[in-house]
Design a protein around this nucleic acid. Structure first.
Lengths: 180, 180
DNA sequence: TATTGTTATACTCTATAACTATA
DNA sequence: TATAGTTATAGAGTATAACAATA
């Protein structure tokens, strides 16, 4: 999810470089030396959604310093911060993830002292999760980066377009999760 | 990239289940039994982009049969199909990937007999890639699924909204790849 | 020396299955 | 029996570094 304390010495795997715009050409006759066709790909909304999502991660990564939170860990810390005492299972359900997915990540966050894990008084199986002071600081720092990115995106959109995107994206999610 | 022939007996890792809509609630006072706050997440365009992208993959996966192409391998086969004789390096550049990323994937595609790899006559280092008949069939089958998904998305959008999305998504990618 | 491609290694994100401990 | 969490294993997708072969 969020990558707390990226292993100090680790070579953090960087996202791919932005694909050259040239490749975005829609099919076509321009068989120039190093331009290749992406076929029908640029006509698919799903493809563009993927491109935009990838560009977002790439951009966040470029803003990030060493041992910074990954987008996934950021969202995990955000939810823990907004729901002190929450359990792993509840978080997994909220994100639609399997509980086993969270175990190792939360373990890293706990080892990195960003998250505190306390056994529940009322249920000996469950843990209550909360942010440590360091976790809160990491989260705040990352949120500033995220919100800077939001400003970059908002700056290229009119307020109407921005609101429209938010709404349409929800509609797309709803349609796809129902379909089939 | 694309996942050609998913290892026959392999338990293809399924995408996460759709998160319950309840989790979408924006902060709030409603501290109901199992509703947890996502904090500021639902207000971020980047977060919604990620959700929509994930919903798209999830939906494709639900349509897919056994040993079907992953979205990544689909795009890879698409580009090979549209540019017979293309080299790995050129594809990597077009997608903004490192060349080392493609080696294992293409190797699988070749082993799965979906892609043919021939040493270039003019450059002994390079391979020319092309689709086999089976590769073409897999690609066509997958494309039908992809286009079915495109119809599902298009059905929830007005033509203007659809066109707007395509254009705005491009604008977001351009803005993010320049920023910082 | 530069380029094409491979291999080893690593990291994120995700899943299923099997298991422990607690309810 | 059901639930919370862990561990082992697996797979997609991506990277860097080091290397071989060819240019």
């Amino acid at each position: 999810m969020t990558d707390t304390t990226r292993p100090k010495g680790a070579t953090s795997p960087r996202p791919p470089a932005p694909p050259p715009a040239a490749a975005n050409v829609d099919e076509g006759q321009g068989e120039a030396p190093d331009t290749l066709s992406l076929g029908p790909l640029p006509g698919y909304l799903g493809y563009k959604l993927r491109q935009a999502q990838a560009a977002s991660f790439r951009h966040i990564d470029r803003m990030a310093g060493e041992s910074d939170l990954s987008p996934g860990r950021f969202s995990l810390l955000t939810v823990i911060g907004a729901n002190p005492g929450v359990t792993q299972t509840r978080i997994a359900r909220a994100f639609g993830l399997d509980k086993s997915t969270l175990s190792p990540v939360i373990d890293q966050l706990v080892k990195g002292r960003l998250v505190a894990r306390k056994r529940s008084k009322t249920d000996g199986r469950a843990y209550g999760l909360s942010l440590t002071a360091a976790g809160r600081r990491s989260l705040d720092a990352k949120r500033a980066q995220i919100e800077a990115q939001e400003k970059v995106m908002a700056a290229t959109l009119s307020p109407r377009e921005h609101a429209g995107m938010m709404e349409i994206l929800d509609r797309i999610v709803a349609a796809l999760d129902v379909a089939r």
